[in-house]
Structures are given as structure tokens and as C-alpha cells.
């Protein structure tokens, strides 16, 4: 199997060792090469290839002459109602999961930082979702939401098919998204909280600042870099989410939970529209980069 990894030549070969290149540089290349070849071949290469495909009418079949079509896929995307519906769902999903996940995680991190009794249990529990395969998380919540044998209908005394209900399916998967993503956020925020210098709180207490003021004027500003980093990452992970929702609803009912990545997956592997799906991916990447850029730029400006 190793042979398949290293067999084909890399797209960009390292420059042949010229006389001027030192022994150290050569050693560096030799050590880096085994790791660089697979990354270039199977991830940088495909990424560039994928961006290229976005401007062609490529089909995901062996027998199709691929032609360059320029921005045709993009104009088609702009006129595609299904895409806009999916885009809207993706926006609602990623913003609400990121925000709610952050608020929930911040609350939990603050509690865990208080050194209450039994917080050990909460600490362990808060890591468990991280340790579970995403597929298992999806299946587990399917059991919770199950219309007949699920615990939720039993608890609430309702008779709702949560994941098949047009208006409830999206909120239902958002709850799962929060549950699944809370651990990372909590762990990171807790680490950030523990790095806030104790002296600041002591000084704050001397000045007569109450709990709320200390939180607002000391904790939050001190946590700011950590908050910006983790919410950015969460947002990117959430908008690119696929597995969890695929397991829960496969995008149903009637496309009400069809996140952009599920839409792109269907286009690419069910309808075999490789070029179109690539353009969708590229458009999403640009949107993500723009949102992220704006967010980071604003945060940096405010921090000054």
C-alpha cells in the first residue's frame, strides 16, 4: 500500500540540487518529501483541479468530453432556486449553531471554572460528544427523535415525527449540531479562562466591581482572541458540515435540512454534475472567506 502512495511523480518536482544549495537545505527536502508527495498529489492537486472543474461542464462519468464553459455554471447557480433555498438553510444552520454553541459553551466553561462540586462529571460529559464518531452521534439522536420509540415524544407527551416535520426538522438538527460541537468550544474557552491573570480579578474586586462588571470588563476582553479564533473555526466547520446531517435527515423533509454540502454532494454523485457541483463548492468557499475576512477584520479593528 505504501507503493500506491509514493508511486506517481509529484506534480511539482523539487528543483535538482544545484551546486549552491547547502547540505542542510538538501536534507530538509529529503525529510519533507515523503509527506509532501501525498499532500500535493491528493489534496493540493485535487483542490486546484476542482477549482478548474468549476469552469467546465464536467460530468462524473468516464464517457464525457469535458469542455470549458467559462462562468456558465456560475450564472446557472445564481438562477437556481434550489441552490438559494439550500444556501439560506446553510446560513441559518451555521450562524445559529455557531452562536448558540458559543453561548452554551461559554456558560459551561464559566461554571466549570468555578470549581463547583460534581463539576468533574460535567467535565467528562462535556468531552464525550467529541469522542463519538459523528455517525454514531447522528444515529443516537435519531433514536431520541424517533416518532414511536423515541424518548422525546415520551417525555413531552407529543406525537411528532421531529425529523420529518417541515418546520421542526431544522431546529431539531440545530440542537444536535450544538450538542455535537459544544465540547471543543468548551475546552478551548475553559483553557482561555484559566489563562486570565488572577490579579486582574483581585484589582477589579478592590475597585468594587460586581460579578457582572468583572465578567464584562475583565473576562470578556481577556478572552477575546480565544473567542474570535474558536467562533471562526466553528463557523467554518458548521457551514461545511455534511456527515451529521446526512445521517440524520439526508437533507429531508423536502429539502428543509439540505445544507449546501448535501446539495453539492447530490449534484456531484447522484446527478453526476461534477462541474456544477465544483462551482457550488467554489462559491461557498468564497462566501466563507468573505464572511471570515469581514469578521476577523472587524474584530481586529475593535481590538485596537
Amino acid at each position: 500500500m505504501t507503493a500506491t502512495v509514493t508511486r506517481p511523480a509529484p506534480p511539482r518536482k523539487p528543483r535538482p540540487a544545484r551546486r549552491g544549495i547547502s547540505r542542510e537545505t538538501r536534507e530538509l527536502w529529503v525529510l519533507m518529501l515523503p509527506a509532501m508527495v501525498p499532500v500535493l498529489l491528493f489534496s493540493v492537486g485535487p483542490l486546484l483541479y476542482g477549482i478548474g472543474l468549476a469552469f467546465t461542464d464536467a460530468r462524473n462519468t468516464r464517457v464525457h468530453e469535458t469542455e470549458f464553459v467559462g462562468l456558465e455554471n456560475f450564472t446557472r447557480l445564481l438562477g437556481d432556486e434550489d441552490f438559494w433555498a439550500s444556501f439560506q438553510i446553510g446560513a441559518i444552520w451555521s450562524v445559529s449553531v455557531t452562536v448558540l454553541q458559543f453561548l452554551a459553551a461559554l456558560g459551561l466553561a464559566l461554571l466549570l471554572n468555578e470549581k463547583l462540586r460534581f463539576s468533574g462529571l460535567a467535565r467528562v460529559l462535556s468531552v464525550v460528544p467529541w469522542a463519538m464518531p459523528p455517525v454514531v452521534i447522528g444515529l443516537m439522536w435519531k433514536l431520541v427523535y424517533h416518532p414511536d420509540a423515541g424518548v422525546l415524544n415520551g417525555l413531552l407527551g407529543t406525537d411528532i415525527n421531529w425529523l420529518a416535520d417541515f418546520s421542526l426538522a431544522l431546529p431539531a438538527i440545530i440542537v444536535v449540531g450544538i450538542w455535537a460541537g459544544m465540547p471543543q468550544t468548551t475546552v478551548v474557552l475553559l483553557a482561555g479562562l484559566q489563562n486570565v491573570p488572577k490579579e486582574l480579578y483581585e484589582a477589579g474586586a478592590m475597585d468594587g466591581a460586581g460579578t457582572w462588571r468583572r465578567f464584562w470588563n475583565i473576562t470578556l476582553p481577556q478572552l477575546r482572541p480565544v473567542i474570535v479564533a474558536i467562533t471562526s473555526l466553528d463557523f467554518v466547520w458548521n457551514i461545511n458540515q455534511f456527515g451529521l446531517v446526512y445521517v440524520l435527515t439526508q437533507g429531508g423533509p423536502g429539502g428543509r435540512t439540505r445544507l449546501p454540502m448535501l446539495f453539492a454532494y447530490e449534484e456531484a454523485f447522484r446527478y453526476r454534475m461534477a462541474g456544477y457541483a465544483s462551482m457550488l463548492g467554489l462559491a461557498m468557499a468564497i462566501v466563507v472567506l468573505a464572511v471570515l475576512g469581514l469578521y476577523l477584520w472587524r474584530q481586529m479593528r475593535e481590538a485596537k
Binding site: L41, G50, G281
Partner: peptide, 19 residues
């Protein structure tokens, strides 16, 4: 992390199919 998997997986699928 930022680039959606679909952008990589389509060409990757094609490359793996050729191999």
C-alpha cells in the same frame, strides 16, 4: 479547513478512479 470538501472530493474521486 476553509475549503469545502466537495471541491476536493470530486477531482479526488476522478483521480482514484483512474488509478
Amino acid at each position: 479547513q476553509v475549503f469545502p470538501f466537495i471541491l476536493i472530493i470530486i477531482p479526488l474521486f476522478m483521480i482514484l478512479r483512474d488509478l
